[in-house]
Design a protein around this nucleic acid. Structure first.
Lengths: 219, 219
DNA sequence: GACCGCCAAACAATCGTTTGGTAGACCCTC
DNA sequence: GAGGGTCTACCAAACGATTGTTTGGCGGTC
């Protein structure tokens, strides 16, 4: 599982001048839909989530979507724009999950917070939607793109802030710091959490809510 | 301080075939010391911390250190190795700060934890040593390098775990999760904290310790 | 015939890295 | 103290691969 079989194929074929790109599937000439565009978005989403922005080339995405790199520019004006759209879709997906979770949650504010955290973790780790969180770790200097992505996340983080405020935290704790600590603990999970590991997501959400609520010191 | 005058020089000169690299300083032929090697490490550290691994080229580092890209390979066998050494130095620096802080700290375990967190934040945000924390956000698939860096951080994270255990947390809270939440909140700070912002580091350390100890719910 | 969606091929730039050479500091010998 | 030799630390220049992107054309559907 550790070796990447792509490397063998990568060096094994190209003998001519340039790329001689060949998409994995010559996908039977789809009729007249824009379904191919979404296929590109899906491919890009999975790749970006795993290997990061710089770790994925336009050719990687194209191959996964069954086309050539140049063809991507029919659908998206640049790699930055493609990433931004992938990111936006991921944020939307997590937001939708949050809405659904809150609709089914009880009224007690801490229980609502726990439900929200679980939805967040689900959307973050269940699929490969980690794009939503990998992005803030962009090079600090890549201001243009980074700012667009931050704007996309603003509304979502505001939701989290409101849920926290509903819990009525102690007035001597800065609510801004509170939210940042929570988001930090939350967004750090992709670094260590693995499916099938020691703790499942519900347990993580429960423990984090409990910590936020009562702290770790014994009563 | 925000604009990079390098960019102007970068595009303004190169007209010939390849690089035509010119280091910013022709640093007067240092006598017979290995001081240049540390200059490379310093340059690399500052650049990596700000722009990330993929955002920095060997030519960038070389220019900052006053030499040409090929010369770096006299000191370091590869870019990966250079980064690993920068990372190791950053971890060592933060560890040293932690030792100093603990030596001057009182005996009460929560106070010790707070001192440790402050030292961590200091080492993380004060200088450009964020390499220590930016690194885990490497592409998940870059196994080789990522594993080396994780090993470098292991001893440090064990220290944090021990400090937390000394606080005698409630037995119904998984101490592993506790540590991960704490590290998450801590390591997320480079994303939002800015010098001169709303909260200074001591305040952040105090608030985080207080949250970990007593939680956010009112008594 | 028009337009959509894609291919094929190239473009210029940049990347990490290698190779061969060389100026100067050092050491040894005469 | 002059001369030779060696080693250190670097320069200069390239190599091959890969990058994001552009351009022109073409088969198929309407």
């Amino acid at each position: 599982m550790d070796q990447t079989p792509d490397d063998a194929a990568k060096t094994a074929q190209g003998s001519d001048t340039e790329g001689a790109e060949t998409p994995t599937e010559p996908p039977a000439r789809a009729p007249r839909q824009d379904s191919r565009r979404e296929a590109v978005l899906d491919a890009a989403s999975e790749l970006f989530a795993v290997k990061g922005f710089d770790g994925v080339s336009m050719r990687d995405i194209a191959r996964r979507a069954g086309m050539l790199s140049g063809s991507l520019y029919y659908h998206f004006p640049s790699k930055d724009d493609l990433f931004a759209e992938v990111h936006l879709a991921a944020v939307a997906r997590v937001t939708a999950r949050l809405d659904a979770a809150l609709a089914a949650a009880p009224e007690e504010p801490w229980a609502r917070l726990e439900a929200a955290l679980l939805a967040h973790l689900d959307g973050l780790l269940d699929r490969a939607d980690a794009v939503a969180v990998l992005s803030p770790h962009f090079p600090t200097e890549r201001d243009d793109l980074a700012r667009r992505l931050a704007a996309q996340r603003d509304a979502y983080e505001e939701r989290i802030r409101a849920l926290l405020a509903d819990c009525g935290p102690r007035p001597d704790l800065d609510p801004g710091l509170l939210r940042l600590f929570l988001l930090g603990a939350l967004n750090w999970t992709p670094v260590w959490w693995r499916p099938g590991g020691a703790a499942d997501l519900a347990e993580v959400a429960r423990a984090l809510t409990d910590l936020m609520r009562r702290g770790a010191a014994p009563v």
